[in-house]
Amino acid sequence: MGYYLRLWWHWARLSLGRESLFRGNAWLRLIGHALWLGTAWAFFAALYLHVPAIAGWRPAEVWLLIAVNELAQLLYSMFVGQGVLWIPDLIWQGELDSILLKPAAPLFTLSVGRMRLYNAPSLALPLALGGYALHTLGLQPSWGQWFWFGLLLALGVAARYALTLTVVSLAFWVTRVYAMPALLAELFRLAGYPEGIFRGAMRALFTWGVPVLVVANFPTTALLGRAGWQPGAEAALAVGFWCVVALALWRAGLRRYTAVGG
């Protein structure tokens, strides 16, 4: 365990060191995230000029949802999102052996070895928006609620990671899967919409099939004090299911990997 923590710390320092050479990029990223958040806010703010609530969600509740969604997306992209997308290229070029030969678990090296910690300044944006939303709602979540929120947020990030790993592992069998991660990324953008608009089969699909609701809606309900045991159980089951599928595919793929590329 200590060995992996030291490795993580080493990669984290490398990531920060690399980015410190390109400070202009950091500003542009911050502007990009601000524009993304601003666009999402403008979309819902314009709608709230015409309706008092959207599927039972009041404006400040949706601001909180947007903030939590952005927080989840940032945490995912900072810690594991970039590395896992690297897998198809390594498989097609026959270069995965360079990872397999390293003295660490391959999946750990691939997932964490390409951290993007330079997105850390952008975390200030969703934290500020989330703080504003909580203040507007007059909410002061308890320590228990914060713990429940953190757990559900971690499950949301894990859900996205497991599904992405499932998709990129298909590269062991399929020649090109470029469109699939892009499709997945677009689907996870739906996480910023209130769960009330997903009803019946759609709710089941976006909880179990593509666990979009797990990413931001479930953690947000924890802060709003609406989350009972059900979101936690649903999130844990969905994440558990996709983790099993992802690992099974990854291991089966590794067994048929020939390292010749193409």
Binding site: A179, A182, L183, R189, L190, Y193, I197
Partner: peptide
Amino acid sequence: FLSFVVAVVPLIALLLLWNTL
């Protein structure tokens, strides 16, 4: 085809949203 499928994914949420509103 796949590129356009990616492009129209946001429509799923938009249609659900407007059906709700």
